Each structure stands twice: as C-alpha cells, then as structure tokens.
Simulated assay, not measured.
Amino acid sequence: MTPYDNIAAAPQAALSGKPLVDGFGRTVTYLRLSVTDRCDLRCVYCMAEHMTFLPKAEVLTLEELDRIASAFVGLGTRKLRLTGGEPLVRKGMLDLVRSLGRHLRSGALDELTLTTNGTRLADFAGELADAGVRRINVSLDTLKPDLFRRLTRGGDLGKVLAGVAAAQAAGLSVKINAVALRDDNAAEIPDLIAWAHGEGCDLTLIETMPLGEIEADRTDQYLSLAAVRREVESFWTLEDLPLSTGGPARYVRVAETGGRLGFITPLSHNFCEACNRVRLTCTGTLHTCLGQEDATDLRAVLRDGADDAELARVIREAVLGKPKGHDFEIARAQPAVTRHMSTTGG
C-alpha cells in the first residue's frame, strides 16, 4: 500500500463546477506548488547565505501536497508546476510526481512540470519523463564555472550541464531561465542566448525581484530587460510571437539562431493584467500574488479536518480576493514582500 492509496483517483465532484475566477474576472488555471523551502545552492539574489530552513512539522506532507493540488485540478487548474527551493531535494518527490500524473492520464490536467536548478537532473530525468513530465525549466545564470560558483555560493556548473543533457536524452523539453544581473552576467547574455538556442533550448530572461532580505543591494543588481532587448536588437533580428506557456513571459524568435527568447519583466513592465497563477508554499500558505503579502493558510484547513467541499470553498474565497497587481519597486528600501523566493516557490 502506498501513501496515496487513500487519495481519490480523480478530483471529487464536490470540487467541480464554476471555474476559479478572481474579483477582476481573471480565471486561475495555473498552480505553482512549492514542495520544499530547502535547496542545495544559495543563489545570491534568492536567499541569504546562512538560511534557517523550516522544521519538518511545518512543511506539508506529500499526501497533503497531493490533496491540495488535486483540489485545484478539480476547480479547473490545467497546469501544475512543482517548485522549491529545489524540488528534487525533497525526499519522496518522485512518488508525488507519479501520483499527480493520474490527472494527466484522466485528462483533467494538461501539464505537470517543474522548475529546478539542474544539479540533480542527471539522477531523476528518466523517472520524471516516465511519470508524465514533458517540459522543465532549469535555472542557469552563467556558463562561466567561477562565476556560477560565486553566484550560487559553491555550485558546480558541470552538474547542471550534465542534468540538461540527461533531461534532453530522456525526451524532456528544456527551457533555461536566467536572472539578468547588471554587475555579473549582463555582458554574457548574448552568449547565454546563443548557447541555449544551440542546444535546442528556449531561454527566458528575468528581472531580479525584490523578495526577502538578502545581503546584496538589489538596486545594484537590477538590469532592465527593456534595455537588454534594445541591445540584443542591435545585432539580432527579434520577431514578436503570440506564444504563451501559461506564465508571464513575452516571447520573441531570434531570426539568426532560430530559437525563442522570453522576457519576464515584473519591474520594467507590469504583467498582471492577464495573471492566471497562484502559488502554494510548502507550508500550505496560498499566495494569490507573488508581489503582495496576501496569504491563506490551507495547512490549517486540512489539519482541522476539512472535507473536500470546505477546502474548495476556502480556495475559491482566497482567489476571489486576488490583488489586481503586484507591488514591486526595485528602489524601495525594504523588499516588496519579506518572504524569500525559496519559501514562496519559484
């Protein structure tokens, strides 16, 4: 008997009905589910060097993660992304992926995917593919081993590159995510684009976001992607694409490389008008906006013995209160929200 044998094979009828719609008429169809706040790297823009991670009792069990994710599927969620921290450091992670894969097989879910730093992909790529994962995001900000080691505080670039190769060998589509850092990788961005496209990977650039207290000054780190795009357009031809993968990125095709390039611009261009996403932390806190302090404690709801109908009611109520937009401002003395990205889920 597995830990998931008592979980229904499909979302119960009590969860079905009207789609999840917020107070501004946006339909929520995408859940980003953090399975752990822990990570085997310490990226300088993501977390403090000496992090205090959560005690086990505060983190949702795999069964609780499955139940909440399944509730969202029953309420019309079509895409689940598993995040962290680093999701592949969570013990039993593959069991959770296999269990959630039942929603792919039933047709209730369109996509089950994850974001990873790639350090453990070489070990898990094949099993992820077997469980129904078809596409993953790998966070990688530089191809320079020394800079990678500094930005991640000790990481091994070779492990990530081996993970990307293993994922592709297993049949997974890989998209590279790179945070644009003015003083670190700005000059390297064209090389990153060329490398990713040469490997058959899309690449998305992300502006640094003011989340959580870190040692670095984000004002120094911030690099506007509007400026990056202008620079790239000075030597490459960019064609705007109508493509949407369910996230906030705006895509172009680079004519000279044939690859796709995305821009996620929470600071230089607000993307909230079409937001279809909510996030669940590994502690069961539902955040309907990455850049606001709104929070609904679904862990308490579960552990107080709520049935599926009550869980659905609480989720609907939380989504109805989803803010109109985030509150990111890079120059603010304090971060927009106090929680780290590793706690919220990437």
Rank of each mutant, 00 (worst) to 15 (best):
M1W: 12
P3L: 11
A9T: 14
P11E: 09
Q12F: 07
A13H: 12
S16N: 11
G17I: 08
K18V: 11
L20R: 02
T27E: 14
Y45K: 09
H50K: 13
E58F: 06
V59S: 02
L60P: 01
A69N: 04
L80K: 01
L80H: 03
R81A: 00
T83E: 11
G85Q: 10
V89W: 13
K91A: 13
D95Q: 12
L96F: 09
V97S: 03
R98G: 03
G101E: 06
R102F: 02
T115H: 05
N117E: 09
L128E: 00
R134A: 08
V138C: 09
V138H: 03
S139V: 05
D141L: 03
L143F: 08
P145I: 08
R149H: 15
G154K: 07
G155S: 11
D156Y: 10
L157I: 09
K159R: 15
G171T: 08
I176S: 05
A180D: 02
N185M: 10
A194H: 10
G198V: 09
L205W: 01
T208E: 13
D217C: 03
S224C: 11
L225E: 08
A226H: 14
A227K: 15
R230H: 12
F235T: 11
W236K: 02
S244L: 04
S244K: 14
G247E: 11
R253S: 13
G259D: 04
L261F: 06
G262V: 00
G262K: 02
A274N: 15
T281D: 01
C289H: 06
G291F: 15
G291E: 00
G291A: 15
A295E: 15
A300H: 14
L302W: 06
R313S: 14
P323R: 10
K324G: 12
G325K: 14
H326W: 09
F328A: 06
E329T: 11
R332F: 09
A333W: 05
A333G: 04
T338Y: 07
M341W: 06
T344C: 06
G346L: 14
